[in-house]
């Protein structure tokens, strides 16, 4: 299956990845190959097989509502490229929250 350039652009946008024109070409080729690879699964006969969403077989595993330790604000912010007054900082987004 060959992905069109428009499809690649859409996927890149959804993934929030800025791609150059050359990268778009390259990604189209690579993603198409991946899809072909995955398409091999189509050959498997899955009649009568229930869909599986979780491979552990666990069900209803939950914890009690108890408060544990959190990170200090200092540790939480340690790897941020930009901070201010205890906040992580990013480029302004204008959509009101």
């Amino acid at each position: 299956m060959k992905l069109t350039k428009d499809q690649v652009k859409k996927v890149a946008k959804l993934a929030n990845l800025p791609l150059s024109e050359a990268e778009e070409e390259e990604s189209a080729e690579q993603l198409s190959k991946i899809l072909d690879y995955i398409d091999q699964l189509e050959k498997v006969d899955t009649r009568g097989v229930e869909p599986t969403y979780n491979v552990t077989g666990n069900e209803n595993v939950m914890r009690e509502d108890e408060i544990g330790e959190s990170l200090s604000a200092e540790d939480a912010l340690k790897n941020a490229s930009k901070t201010k007054d205890g906040f992580f900082v990013t480029k302004g987004v204008f959509e009101s929250e």
Binding site: E66, E69, S70, L71, A73, A76, D85
Partner: peptide
């Protein structure tokens, strides 16, 4: 008392930013 998927306190209103995280 705690958040949906971790043990951090869910009582965030008026608290110092980024003090209830993991």
């Amino acid at each position: 008392k705690s958040k949906m998927f971790c043990n951090c306190s869910a009582d965030y209103f008026g608290k110092k930013p980024n003090t209830h995280t993991c």
